[in-house]
Amino acid sequence: MTLTPAQIEALVRANADALGLRLTPEQMPGVLRYVALAADMAALVDGLPLGRDDEGANVFVPVAPAARE
């Protein structure tokens, strides 16, 4: 799925509002460029069909009491 420049800008403005990030006019062109690049990367990872057993790599490790070094 490719996003248009208008969709990228809408995403940036909505998510910045949701996170409380105030983007300045000076920052905005760079931010749009990098989010567009990330969208290209997202299209690549989204293009790989994954199944039920394709678990994410971010696995939680329970914390046990342990002696500190």
Partner: peptide, 17 residues
């Protein structure tokens, strides 16, 4: 700044890939 704004679905898909 851009990284802070990425949709969660993009990142979770990346972890599975």
């Amino acid at each position: 700044l851009a990284g802070a704004l990425l949709p969660a679905g993009w990142v979770q898909q990346a972890q599975r890939v």
